[in-house]
């Protein structure tokens, strides 16, 4: 008979958290600050994710959005699915559930002492923000720093006020672009017209840089091509993959990529590793990337 550990706890039980503040960032994106009532989330690292549970609705995997998680955790959430639509109906003071953190996160130790280029597309800024915060908090541990942030529409810019502060710093180069500058209002801040890849060609990225990328799946192929054209080595490129993580524990199968559980061995993967995983990103295994 199979032996089982004494007092084996169910890993499916969420911890409670209270919505402390709700900050609208753009039309469909909101920053939720959650006060953790029970459970310890202080081990959260940039690039990891938590499962946000709305009783009676379901769970949704959400990237950790701030470098430091203590009594509170920040989650930047787009209203796009069943759970997030229900979340946007809640008010401050209401209760949600949290499980996690899950996944590996960005390789902070490997990045140490290196030049760093962070590339975000759209909502990909959420995990990149936690990494950026971490690097800025420990600025002396890292070399040159570049942030590239691409949007489809200028109105989708997130973390405008924070980015204005970042733009004033001399120890980071920031490139922000939108494919479409939408009126009638002026863009929320100065940005260029173009794609992420256009910003990449402008940025002084070279083979000395370590790269962190998070964005929509379609972006990866072109960003990787652009990075390679600049001489960046494959093993310096780290990508955060989006999949539908449901259990977070390498069991339910929804987040399989090739042969890996995104929720356990990812969501951040090195490009050299992804090339061995069929269906990971569009350019996998092809000479074009």
């Amino acid at each position: 008979m199979l032996k089982v550990k004494q007092n084996l706890q169910s890993p499916f039980i969420p911890h409670w958290a209270i919505i402390r503040s709700i900050t609208n960032l753009s039309e469909d994106n909101t920053l939720f600050e959650l006060q953790i009532e029970d459970g310890d989330f202080s081990e959260c690292k940039p690039g990891q994710f938590v499962q946000l549970w709305l009783p009676g609705v379901g769970e949704s995997p959400i990237s950790v959005c701030s470098a430091k998680v203590g009594e509170t955790i920040e989650l930047c959430i787009r209203r796009v699915g069943r759970v997030t639509n229900a979340l946007f109906l809640l008010n401050e003071g209401e209760r949600v559930g949290l499980r996690g953190p899950f996944g590996t996160g960005f390789p902070l130790e490997k990045y140490k002492g290196k030049n760093l280029c962070l590339i975000a597309g759209g909502l990909g800024i959420a995990p990149i923000r936690s990494l950026l915060q971490h690097v800025l908090l420990n600025r002396e541990d890292y070399g040159k720093l570049i942030l590239i942030y691409g949007l489809r529409h200028s109105a989708q810019l997130l973390f405008r006020h924070e980015l204005k502060h970042v733009l004033r710093r001399r120890d980071i180069e920031v490139f922000i672009s939108a494919e479409e500058i939408r009126g009638p209002d002026l863009p929320p801040m100065s940005m260029q017209l173009g794609r992420v890849t256009d910003m990449l060609s402008l940025a002084p990225v070279d083979e000395s840089y370590e790269i962190a990328i998070c964005g929509p799946p379609v972006m990866y192929k072109y960003v990787v091509q652009g990075l390679k054209a600049k001489g960046v080595k494959e093993n310096s490129i780290w990508l955060s993959l989006e999949r539908h993580m449901k259990c977070g524990m390498g069991k339910c199968g929804h987040c399989f990529v090739g042969g890996r559980f995104t929720c356990m061995q990812g969501p951040v993967f090195n490009l050299t590793e992804l090339r061995f995983l069929p269906e990971a990103i569009e350019c996998e295994g092809t000479e074009s990337c």
């Binding site: 089982v4 706890q9 890993p11 069991k251």
Partner: peptide
């Protein structure tokens, strides 16, 4: 067994499995 006993163990599967003589 391999999947569900891997860390973190799936308590529901493991409890059912460990009480059954095969």
């Amino acid at each position: 067994d391999t999947i569900y006993s891997a860390h973190p163990q799936d308590s529901h599967y493991m409890k059912r499995r460990s009480k059954t003589l095969i």
